[in-house]
Design a protein around this nucleic acid. Structure first.
Length: 108
DNA sequence: GGAGTGACGCGGC
DNA sequence: AGCCGCGCCACTC
């Protein structure tokens, strides 16, 4: 069938695959879907992720490992707290050793 | 129907 | 070396 607006669903699936204690980037997800240029749309999809409880948006950060989306969470540091709960250290709203914790959907 | 936005990424200065 | 702006795709009003 045709991939119409599965974009959101694709993003949700990828984010859902992110192992606990690991983080991924919007660009990586977009690339995994096959639209590396739609990295922005990926973030947009996350906006609707609130409809899907299985989508740990807090594990998704930008390519620098910065919690850019933390501002969108209910609390002020909800995203940061969730990551810390998973064992991820956050320093200045940035994931410590982000590259080491980075998880690529293709490399799962 | 059209226009604007947006939780990004990259390049250029 | 840091800072700024532009572009892309998909969705919403």
């Amino acid at each position: 069938m045709k991939v119409k607006s599965d974009f959101f669903l694709q993003v949700y699936e990828i984010v859902r695959m992110v192992p606990r204690g690991r983080v991924t980037t919007y660009g990586a997800i977009a690339k995994a879907i096959g639209a590396p240029q739609s990295s922005r749309t990926v973030g947009y999809a996350m906006n609707a992720s609130h409809s899907i409880p299985d989508v740990p948006a807090h594990r998704v950060v930008n390519r620098v490992g910065m919690l850019t989306g933390k501002h969108h969470f209910p609390g002020s540091d909800t995203m940061q707290r969730l990551l810390q709960e998973e064992g991820i250290e956050i320093n200045d709203d940035c994931v410590v050793e982000f590259e080491r914790l980075l998880w690529l959907p293709n490399t799962m």
